[in-house]
């Protein structure tokens, strides 16, 4: 409840920020991709590490996945107070270019601790049960439209899984189904395991 109140209180400031970002991301046609992408750093980190740990790292993330998220923000199938207005103003070419730009950046290390052996063991059993590696692949690096999970921010992973479970994150019902079929304790272990890889 408290977090929801806080979010509502912060809505006005976020909207202003989003409008500023929309203006800078969309910008003039003459902007280079570097210029268009530069404003993304405000949230996603100038060097690829977001200050707010519930924001995802997008440097080095899979290109197709980044593109599809922008597309879905624009379509409204994924909703976010900051990203939705930004994406609404983007054309497909912009989305593809931004996705390619960030995908080529190096994946930063958050130096998150490796999960303890018992946690890792629990995580791997749960991962094997629903078959996460079928899409995210053996090293959890993802590919194409499937995101890298290994080394992603612990807080973002936890928030995303929670949002899939409530279907607040609505742009991948298959993921919602898989997360809902997995216990909260197992998911907590998976978050620790993936963050520390």
């Amino acid at each position: 409840m408290s977090s929801r109140t806080a979010r509502r209180a912060g809505g006005g400031a976020q909207l202003v920020a989003a409008i500023v970002l929309v203006a800078s991301v969309v910008g003039a046609q003459s902007q280079t991709i570097e210029e268009k992408a530069s404003s993304c750093g405000a949230c996603h980190g100038e060097a690829g590490i977001p200050q707010d740990k519930t924001k995802p790292m997008i440097w080095g993330q899979q290109e197709g996945y980044l593109y599809l998220q922008l597309r879905d923000f624009k379509r409204g199938t994924r909703k976010n107070d900051e990203m939705s207005p930004i994406a609404a103003a983007l054309e497909r070419e912009d989305m593809l270019a931004l996705a390619a730009y960030f995908a080529q950046k190096p994946w930063p290390s958050l130096e998150q601790a490796r999960a303890p052996a018992e946690v890792a063991k629990r995580a791997l059993v749960a991962i094997g049960s629903v078959g996460c590696t079928g899409c995210h692949l053996g090293e959890f690096q993802g590919d194409g439209s499937v995101p890298r999970l290994a080394g992603q921010s612990r807080e973002y992973l936890a928030k995303t899984i929670a949002d899939f479970r409530t279907r607040e994150r609505g742009n991948n019902p298959g993921m919602s189904d898989l997360m809902n079929a997995t216990s909260e304790d197992d998911l907590a272990a998976i978050v620790e395991y993936l963050a520390g890889r």
Binding site: R75, S129, P173, G174, N180
Partner: peptide, 23 residues
Amino acid sequence: YHVANAPYPQGKLWLGGAFKVIP
């Protein structure tokens, strides 16, 4: 075998539930 309901997701994973290996 688990069932869940979601509308057509326009090319995204659409399982309508989950099948889970019993560890």
